[in-house]
Computed example of a mutant assay.
Amino acid sequence: MPINQPSGQIKLTNVSLVRLKKGKRRFEVACYQNKVQDYRKGIEKDLDEVLQIHQVFLNVSKGFVAPKDELIKAFGTSENDVIIKEILDRGEIQLSEKERQLMITKINNEMLTIISAKCINPKSKKRYPPTMIHKALTELKFSVVLNRPAKTQALEAIKILVSSQIIPITRAKMRVKIELPTADHDDAVDDSVVAQVKRLLTTSVHNESSTTIWSCTALIDPVSYRELVALCDKRGTLQVLDMAVIDEAK
């Protein structure tokens, strides 16, 4: 049924739509710009701050509210908040061209910042500014896409940059502290585990040993991190001290 809008009523402005198809019907909610992403990240939990109108529509632009029987048929309930939350969680965000460009710019800036923080020039041991990284990625015809996290796209871009070497670039090393129980400890690890750990260390900064604990603060390549986690899991500890060491001399 259409909403009876009185003459002179203020229309929805800066509206973002979230649509979800259930069965043969499409349902929509009208939201404020940027609030849907905040809701999905758990930053915003108040539906009234997310929604422009606390209502489920068949068509927002035409003002057609979803009938109760249609909601029950599609969602198994007519409880407004339950249905709205499902649409917000699972629906597709509809953006205007202006909103799309703003979102792409935001994701791109986040991605470039992440790459700049995680990578260095292997000769100078310095970070590249985001502008230089952007220029290199443009030459490689790499561009960001919507609906994918900036971090995921940054890691993909790093692989392309490192493999292409369009500019001299490598991942900055991580500084970690590792502790493993040794031979005289009740929960001792096999000597081969310590050997495997040592093999993954690129530079040993500081070592401490006792009768029960082998401890080391060292630099590692980020690609080795998951393997180290598996080796230390349930038998020792792995602590990240620095996500990106810029100057190894320090």
Rank of each mutant, 00 (worst) to 15 (best):
G76V: 10
L161S: 04
Q37T: 11
E99G: 00
P130A: 13
S215D: 00
S209A: 02
E70A: 15
L12A: 07
T217W: 01
K118I: 04
G236W: 14
G23M: 13
Q165Y: 13
I133R: 06
K250R: 09
R235P: 00
V82H: 09
I93L: 15
K250G: 04
T212I: 06
V193C: 05
E248F: 09
L102D: 05
S163M: 02
I72T: 06
A157R: 03
T203P: 00
V194I: 15
I166Y: 02
V240G: 01
I213W: 03
E28H: 07
K123P: 00
R25K: 14
A30S: 09
D186C: 05
S164T: 05
T152C: 02
A74P: 08
N147A: 09
D191W: 13
K118H: 06
P149H: 09
V82I: 12
A136P: 13
L71N: 04
Q196G: 01
T182Q: 12
I53D: 12
A244F: 12
K62L: 15
D221R: 05
A183Y: 15
K135N: 08
I83L: 10
K125I: 03
A157Y: 05
L17K: 13
L228K: 04
S215P: 00
I213C: 00
S96M: 07
N147K: 13
E92W: 11
S96T: 15
A66C: 11
C119I: 05
V229Q: 07
N14F: 12
K73M: 10
S164P: 00
I43H: 12
K118V: 02
L155R: 01
I166P: 00
I87Q: 03
A183I: 14
K159H: 03
D184S: 09
P67G: 06
Q9V: 15
L137C: 08
S192V: 10
Q52E: 07
S124Q: 06
Q9D: 11
E110V: 02
L102N: 07
A195G: 02
L140E: 12
A150T: 11
A136T: 15
L201D: 00
T77K: 09
K62M: 14
V240H: 05
C232P: 02
Y128A: 07
M132W: 09
